[in-house]
Design a protein around this nucleic acid. Sequence first.
DNA 1: TGGCATCTTGTACAAGTGTACGATATTATG
DNA 2: CATAATATCGTACACTTGTACAAGATGCCA
Lengths: 124, 124
Amino acid sequence: MTVENLPALSPSETEILRLVWQLDKATVQEVCEKLPAERKITYATVQTLLRRLEKKGYLKHTVNGKAHVFSAAVEREHVVKRSVGDFLDRLFGGDPIPLMQYLAEHGTISADDIENLKRLTSKQ
Amino acid sequence: MTVENLPALSPSETEILRLVWQLDKATVQEVCEKLPAERKITYATVQTLLRRLEKKGYLKHTVNGKAHVFSAAVEREHVVKRSVGDFLDRLFGGDPIPLMQYLAEHGTISADDIENLKRLTSKQ
DNA sequence: TGGCATCTTGTACAAGTGTACGATATTATG
DNA sequence: CATAATATCGTACACTTGTACAAGATGCCA
């Protein structure tokens, strides 16, 4: 399943999906624990979001005891690609340069980081 | 009015807002014309989105003849800052480096561009 | 085996979103 | 001034999203 055909991710769903990626496999509880403390959201809500992510095709689950263990059903790279692409289109008309510039100016990005990036791009 | 207090932008609203920025001032028609051809959306829909953007506080309008002329009510910089910040949080847990990397690897970004960015950051 | 703790499932519901029709107002034009 | 063209405004409506409760299922421990 390519990401292209899947329904779009809502902001909250994206957040949850990221945590599942980070944990590789995760139960509802584990995702809850990984949430930043200031993000007050109940177990039940996380559960619903995981369910929706599965229904949309982004996650699958296996059963372990009574708990569901969720994991990615599509490659993270693909999701990132589409998400960044969409974001870029909407906010910058598709041009990545202004975003790079913004990050370079306002992000906590050092000259070293950029040096590394430069190496990355020139290496192919 | 700082952007902080304003209701969040939906994807479609963001797209329309970007066009208004691009045009500086724009009527419904002008925004429609600026839309990419493959984006099939009616005049009425654009109108609604512009109205909602105004209601949310992102746009204001003056009247010229029978047409409304919309323009930004908040600084683009601020909106970009918040949008990028939110996006970064959701998809990358707030860390800009992976996004930079992604753009460097997959975007159409030349080594020259990066060189410029480097100059940008090291200059402060 | 009985119950506590923990899970999932079903369901809910208000608000937001994407999309747009129909009615009404306004302006330019013949 | 009548009318066509063009605007806006009110409204609609199905779908999504964010958030969550309540009820039923399941596994664990005494």
